[in-house]
Write a protein that binds this DNA or RNA. Sequence first.
DNA 1: TGCAATGATTAAGT
DNA 2: ACTTAATCATTGCA
Length: 433
Amino acid sequence: MDEQTRMMQTLAGAAMAGHSIQGGMTLPPPHSHDGGDGDGRKQDIGDILHQIMTITDQSLDEAQAKKHALNCHRMKPALFSVLCEIKEKTGLSIRGAQEEDPPDPQLMRLDNMLLAEGVSGPEKGGGAAAAAAAAAASGGSSDNSIEHSDYRAKLSQIRQIYHTELEKYEQACNEFTTHVMNLLREQSRTRPISPKEIERMVGIIHRKFSSIQMQLKQSTCEAVMILRSRFLDARRKRRNFSKQATEILNEYFYSHLSNPYPSEEAKEELAKKCSITVSQVSNWFGNKRIRYKKNIGKFQEEANLYAAKTAVNAAHAVAAAVQNNQTSSPTTPNSGSSGSFNLPNSGDMYMNMQSLNGDSYQGAQVGANVQSQVDTLRHVISQTGGYSDALGGNSLYSPHHLNANGGWHETATPSSVTSPTEGPGSVNSDTSN
DNA sequence: TGCAATGATTAAGT
DNA sequence: ACTTAATCATTGCA
């Protein structure tokens, strides 16, 4: 109110100084100060200002009547232009004080995150339908894919809500802006409003709405974070593999005991057969190798079980392989190695077979077969060799695959080397052929 | 409820 | 990129 009064006084002064105001008043002056011509004008303006100031104190009808009277007052145009001048000056100072603020770093961070999460920005093949389709395409049996599609469906839900809300806010913002602009335009007939002022007002409205939008973005980010953490927790949750899957993995492990490092292809094959992911296969083998090495004695029983399980098949397959190779090569690679646990690795075998056989694919298969089957047979032989002591006796078999440091790597070839020796479908051929 | 088994994660090494 | 070794966290059994 103080400011307003001050402005009015300024206005009165400015009107006095810059414009020639003449004529009498249609309204009775509240205070009758006597004086000269100047005093009369001053009184006029004072009266008008007083009426303006007290207009809100009166009833609506009274105020309307007074407003009309003031509007028709002969001094109105003059006062109006002075008011415009003052407003222009104060408007400039306000604009100078709050210039366009730089882009909010927090808002940018939120935007970036929403973009990265696929909530904002172009839809990247997501959506509940796409997620469901992806789950169906992958067989839908894997928990992982179910969880994944679930995650994507939830994310899509968040995305949808986010966009709906954003749209609503934008619409509300536009509506409100239009409304305010109309109001200002209407008011500009009775009070001075410059286009710049309207612009400024629009800016204020937009800023207000963008702050609301930021809250929306923040909430969306939080929702995504919660979803993410829940999803990751769910993934972290351990689920035992099916009995069948464990069996398949164990069969592979014990039939490749000299080099239990499945190649990428073998891992993929195992993953497919066990309905788990390749990384789960890797995890399993990593754990298995470590745990086997740490406590060989404990795994003897298991090793025997799987060895016996595949022994018959292996014997048959080896016999077949030997017979097959005898036709093309007089010196069978595995004949030389059968007496020792320090076998040449399957890569070498493959090279021999390939060069002798001429048929690379068959050679590769036979090479892999012989390697794994000899592993199994060796185990069976060692088990039936009269070693009754569980640890001492059996350790004659297994630890031979390990070097002095307890590692497989000294004698065994890493998967990256052996993998080319195993042709397509080598996993199947290892144990079941 | 305690404990072993086991899948997953992480740091460090190659 | 892959492995080892240690560790975490959950599951399942007695």
